[in-house]
Amino acid sequence: MSVVTLHINDELVSARSDQKLLEVIREQGIDIPTLCHLEGVSDLGGCRLCLVEVQGSSKLLAACVTPVQEGMSVYTHSERLVRYRRMILELLLSERTHTCAVCVTNGHCELQYEAAELGVDHVRYEYLAPQLHLDASHDRFTLDHNRCILCQRCVRVCDEVEGAHTLDIMGRGANSRVITGLNRPWGDCVSCTSCGKCVQVCPTGALFFKGSSVGEMEKRHAFLSWILNGRERKEWQW
């Protein structure tokens, strides 16, 4: 694997040629927000929070899906990027009903964290407040569409790591929803292995363990790389 050199915020940096920009940026200790990105599954490029400016490109590029290139010059925190990131969070907060005060992941939520981090102290857009249901038919987990940001982490982890593909997205645009099976109650889906990976990777309170009360649902994202590394190194014999 060859090595390329590039500039990130005017600092000269070297990277492996198969790396994506996001990885290299984070290796430099630069904090760049993401919501749909998840270590261990494929990238989507959907949340648009990791957009960066690349000199010579008229478009902003999502760092999670953009491969590094020799001689690239990347800026991660220009004034407009920060402003756009803030607006994207505002849009996400307005899309469904994220009433943090009464949420199971209050205090452990990535959306809430990013909003505070980026200084979103209010939302200028109309709260859309769609009427969505909550699926509590599964023995162990609950899916609350009202708090879903459609990052598709659950869909990808169910497909790529667990191999069950119980979850997918139906519809399109603002009517997109995470579905289980043929949009049936989760509890009726025979393909679900009840592994709980989807719950652990969900950045918000859309997926949680049953019985969690406000602020009780903490997630463990790091377990995914633990599983994947272990699998690769064949740490388990069974």
């Binding site: 997918d168 043929l182 949009n183 049936r184 393909s191």
Partner: peptide, 25 residues
């Protein structure tokens, strides 16, 4: 209907949620 989509999902060896996702897109 659901039966038809289950039938197609089985024939093509696709997950049911995948078929439903495509049909509603």
């Amino acid at each position: 209907d659901d039966d038809l989509m289950i039938y197609i999902a089985r024939a093509l060896k696709l997950p049911q949620s995948w078929v439903y996702g495509v049909a509603t897109f």
